[in-house]
Design a protein around this nucleic acid. Sequence first.
DNA 1: ACGCCCGCGTAACAGCCTGTAACAAACCGC
DNA 2: GCGGTTTGTTACAGGCTGTTACGCGGGCGT
Lengths: 245, 245
Amino acid sequence: MTIPRLLVVDDDADMRGMMTEFLHKHGFIAHGANSREDIKAALAAGRVDMILLDVMLGDENGVEICRDLRRDEDVPIILVSALSADHQRMAGYEVGADDYIAKPFNPDLLIARVKAVLARTRRAASLSHRRRTKVFRFAGWTYDAKRDEVISPDGYQVSLSRREHALLQALLANPFIPLTRAEIAATLDVTGEGGHEDEASGRAIDMLVGRLRSKIEDDPKAPVMLRTERGVGYVLAVDVTAEDA
Amino acid sequence: MTIPRLLVVDDDADMRGMMTEFLHKHGFIAHGANSREDIKAALAAGRVDMILLDVMLGDENGVEICRDLRRDEDVPIILVSALSADHQRMAGYEVGADDYIAKPFNPDLLIARVKAVLARTRRAASLSHRRRTKVFRFAGWTYDAKRDEVISPDGYQVSLSRREHALLQALLANPFIPLTRAEIAATLDVTGEGGHEDEASGRAIDMLVGRLRSKIEDDPKAPVMLRTERGVGYVLAVDVTAEDA
DNA sequence: ACGCCCGCGTAACAGCCTGTAACAAACCGC
DNA sequence: GCGGTTTGTTACAGGCTGTTACGCGGGCGT
């Protein structure tokens, strides 16, 4: 296999340059584009193995571009957005993006996702469905996203409830990135209904976090991994590696 | 992320004062320098996020200084010059300046460019070396920046509050350098830089310092490490070694 | 040298935020 | 429907943080 060629689509030239440079350093070939026409031109001109597409382009909509591309082309797409609200995330999946990453993003996470998507699309023709089998490892723990299994560093299996699973997934997807309660709630409530705006729904998230802590923290009173950011929300403060299973 | 600290390099004291004052009003911390030695000193002290460098310094050449700095340091630089000829501008880019602005300049334009360059370099920095585990050692103490652990010379672990942690980090980043209350407050208030009140709140910093002292000083009444500079602020007067872990 | 004034340390307090226990409602498989 | 499990709500306690108030001590002007 040759070196993967990526196309970075962002209307901010600085951001484009920064991302392409960073990807270069990690062994990829990356070029920039800032409009639908640029993308079309790049696709027509030569090989493009993957597109990193910003959701917010000045006067165009990344999601629509993504949907259009998906209809015409077979290129893998990772959506990038400064909006971390999760209906955005789900919308991304609905239009067929292969993955999604919030900006500002953990650089290692970006690389990991790029590699993961590339590996997947190389093996099989790209499927526009999510729920690929992934295994996360963090601080000795193992989390199998497909089987919903959580294994402690000691080798014991811990059983989490559905909601606790969802919370853990949300955190694993954004290591070292503080998530507000609203963001967490949005991530958990993917249950179709569009009426968000539940602004003051009490401390359900706090309870959930507390319960998850009691299951995965050595000392739930002094959490090390799932930390609280006073006045902000919660953060998963551990390095996370994601692999295909 | 802290409040950006800028270094204004200009041989005209009035100009320096005007610029630093203006930058202060816009929420930045700005200090002046008028020679290569001043710049080196400030950089060695480790407290510079960006340099506004005048091209025409009496007997020295800003462009050359810029090129030199670029070779040794990683600090962003905006070149300032009364010459608006465009070859100057290009020369500036060739020597590695991040941006260029002509003097006399529109103040808003200055702020806009400063912010733009900072935003760019911040993202780049957060991408290139994020979350590198660092361990500080000072006077027998050990501070693990990643795990937020503080261990006394006796081997006991001391628990600090979040704000105390932030204060300690700010001090460790600037050993032997007196920090004003405003600087400390700016460093601590990472919360989206909405309002920056000068001389706003009372002695919150004093309290914080006092509380930190009570936890890390043998005799809080007679502080040895965290000393007070009357009329100025506070200093961490110990040698600090920082290691990657 | 003396006394005033300002800056600093710190105790007390209040407000906010969070953790958590206890309970109630919802859910789920049978 | 039923028992157990999961999830949300309420209420209370405790910690953290900023403010105020007061006392002290050093610097400075005279």
